[in-house]
Simulated scan of single mutants.
Amino acid sequence: MAALEIVQEYYSNFNNKDWQGMLGLLHEEIRHEPNQGDPRIGLEKFTEFLQTMDTSYEETLTNMTFFTTPDGTRVAAEFTVNGIYKKGEEGMPEAHGQSYVLPAAAFLEVKDGKVSRVTTYYNLPHWISLVS
């Protein structure tokens, strides 16, 4: 399967809340570079991240647009995050079911048929203003 197809399936699994499907597409040494904070390395750390996300947020991605590198190893994705803030996280505003719509982007690398890196970008101060 081509990198673009793998990434499209990854995001389809995200929207379907098929966490096992998502995890099955990740390289054992996945490098997750979040918008804020230190990178997470490995499936265990990524699984913990997904559990936190599932507890605190209800999100669906729309307006998906994908771009690939000529060598087919990297994919950029631009999308809109449509979310509900369910449970507050430390250092963030209190959650009480606020909805938000936020533009975001991600850069993914595929190695040996698996996603080996996910780097995500969004405007955190704007998100905070949307849920405050």
Rank of each mutant, 00 (worst) to 15 (best):
L102T: 07
R31N: 09
I6N: 02
S129N: 09
Y100Q: 04
V118N: 07
A106C: 14
F107W: 13
E5P: 00
G37Y: 10
H126R: 09
E5V: 00
T119M: 13
D38S: 12
T65L: 10
E44Q: 13
K111A: 12
E29A: 03
N82S: 08
G37D: 09
T119E: 13
E109P: 00
Y122I: 02
G113W: 06
Y122M: 12
A95H: 04
N13Y: 05
L23W: 03
Q98I: 01
M1F: 07
N35K: 07
V81E: 09
L4M: 07
Y85G: 13
T65N: 08
G37S: 09
G83F: 04
S132G: 11
S99W: 05
K87Q: 15
D18V: 00
T80R: 07
E29H: 10
S129G: 06
F67A: 14
G113S: 02
E48I: 02
F49N: 12
K45T: 13
S99A: 12
A2Q: 11
R74K: 14
E33Y: 02
E89S: 11
D18F: 04
A3K: 06
L4Q: 13
L124Y: 02
G91I: 13
G42F: 04
H126S: 08
Y121K: 01
Y122T: 00
D71V: 01
Y10E: 01
H96Y: 11
P93I: 08
N13I: 00
L124G: 00
N15L: 04
E109V: 07
N63M: 02
K17R: 15
Q51V: 02
E78T: 14
L25K: 03
W19V: 08
L50K: 08
V7L: 07
E109H: 12
A95T: 03
A3S: 14
R74N: 10
Y122K: 03
N35R: 09
G42Y: 04
E89R: 14
V131F: 07
G42K: 11
P103Y: 09
A3V: 06
R117C: 10
K114D: 10
Y57F: 15
V81N: 06
Y85T: 05
P93F: 08
Y57Q: 14
N63T: 03
